[in-house]
């Protein structure tokens, strides 16, 4: 494409001086708005000092560990249950498919607090299913780590499902039909032909689902409560720090920085893996 730069008659529309100035102005405003908060976060942490003490505080460690493993469990469960269902939905045709598609997307646009309330009405101690379970076994979901995973699942799983669905949609069904005529069973075709091609999309879905779970606040707070060591994930610990926990406002800043670091690390790793996946075929 570079050759046509030297041929005035062929060059595409160029930005003139006024347009360039406008673009530069907008870019600076946008950059300031998006970058400044992170700079502020880092600057405050440095100014306050005591980063290490706060970062290794028991409450921080517990919240971080809880966030990491509940999010990982949620993402794993979403992938295990969601992959076959996404594939089935992608390949099937039935009346009302549009409705199903819409319902799957609903939690993505639903406010998480609504999701939390909805979960309470179903699985809470007085909930549709929660009440009989409680009276039969004495078990309640409230204030348990299971509830944290349930809240994350309702809010984040659709992100995986959507990504997986479009990944499977992008694969030509013809390629699977040809595999059948070559003697491959449905299972072998799925594992050897479909899955390897859908893999980048599935990976993206897992990362999105995991990241959304790491940040989950509203549904967890309402459905699982805010119990240190049991249901207090990182976002809940930050909220509590603001309302005056042992960590204090400085703690909130440190917790935020840690979450930011984790997010950056995951994003970088994902980019690297995805780039390798794209280069390979």
């Amino acid at each position: 494409m570079s050759w046509n730069r030297h041929v005035p008659g062929l060059s595409g529309p160029r930005l003139d001086r006024t347009a360039k100035t406008t673009v530069a102005f907008l870019a600076i405003v946008v950059a300031l708005f998006f970058v400044l908060p992170f700079v502020g976060l880092a600057q405050r942490a440095v100014e306050n000092g005591g980063f290490w003490d706060l970062a290794t505080h028991r409450q921080t460690r517990e919240a971080l560990w809880l966030s990491l493993w509940t999010s990982t469990t949620t993402a794993t469960l979403a992938a295990v249950f969601g992959t076959p269902l996404a594939y089935a939905l992608s390949r099937s045709r039935f009346p009302g498919k549009v409705v199903v598609d819409g319902l799957v997307d609903l939690p993505i646009v639903l406010p998480p607090t609504v999701a939390g309330v909805a979960l309470l009405t179903a699985f809470g101690r007085r909930g549709l299913l929660g009440e009989p379970i409680d009276s039969l076994t004495g078990y309640t979901f409230g204030f348990s780590t299971t509830a944290v995973i349930m809240a994350q699942m309702l809010v984040s799983a659709p992100f995986f499902f959507r990504a997986a669905r479009s990944g499977f949609d992008a694969i030509d069904p013809q390629i699977e039909r040809v595999a059948y005529t070559l003697g491959a069973s449905r299972t072998r075709t799925f594992l050897r032909i479909t899955l390897p091609q859908a893999w980048p999309a599935l990976l993206a879905g897992i990362v999105l689902c995991w990241a959304r779970s790491m940040g989950e606040l509203g549904a967890t707070l309402i459905f699982a409560g805010n119990l240190e060591g049991k249901t207090q994930t990182m976002p809940l610990a930050i909220i509590e720090a603001f309302s005056g926990s042992a960590l204090g406002l400085d703690g909130a800043i440190v917790l935020s920085l840690i979450l930011l670091g984790v997010a950056l690390a995951v994003l970088t790793l994902f980019r690297a893996v995805a780039a390798r996946g794209l280069r390979q075929p």
């Binding site: 040809v178 595999a179 390897p196 075929p281």
Partner: peptide
């Protein structure tokens, strides 16, 4: 089922398996 019919089927858009080598494509069936 198609797996048991022992026919070769080739379509316009070829549907080659992109993540496999040419040799692996041929050996698949």
């Amino acid at each position: 089922p198609p797996q048991g019919r022992a026919v070769g089927y080739v379509v316009q858009d070829l549907a080659l398996f992109p993540q496999m080598s040419v040799g692996q494509n041929i050996a698949f069936g």
